[in-house]
């Protein structure tokens, strides 16, 4: 099953400690297990652009929809046996400690 991990910031989480960041090891483990499909960081919300089409007209605006304290800082698409494996994969990601991770099952078209 495919899941998308939303890597989120969380103001109530412990402060980031560079020495405890195991993202490289995490990536290596998940690659060797064949779990990771694709994933990366995301540029901050200041670099976001919003597009809408209303009555045929494309409207482009700057920034996110709403000011929030929590935002998505990265993502990973993973392929796992089941939710328990996805939970295990997410729990090993450094941002599970310094932020939080939302696991969303991918919903293929036609299902």
């Amino acid at each position: 099953m495919e899941y998308m991990l939303f890597i989120c910031t969380d103001p109530s989480a412990p402060k980031y400690v560079a020495a405890e960041d195991n993202i490289v090891e995490w990536g290596a483990e998940m690659d060797s297990r064949g779990v990771t499909r694709h994933g990366n960081r995301l540029r901050p919300v200041e670099d976001a652009t919003t597009v809408t089409v209303r009555e045929g007209e494309v409207v482009v605006s700057d920034g996110p929809f709403a000011e929030t304290k929590e935002w998505i800082a990265g993502y990973d698409i993973i392929d796992c046996t089941d939710l328990d494996e996805a939970i295990e994969v997410a729990s090993k990601h450094p941002m599970a400690r310094f932020g939080k991770i939302e696991i969303r099952p991918v919903w293929p078209l036609g299902e």
Partner: peptide, 14 residues
């Protein structure tokens, strides 16, 4: 069904 919650007795670590 949708989130893939496994139908099983959990493994020893869980």
């Amino acid at each position: 069904r949708n989130a893939g919650i496994p139908y099983r007795v959990p493994p020893p670590e869980l």
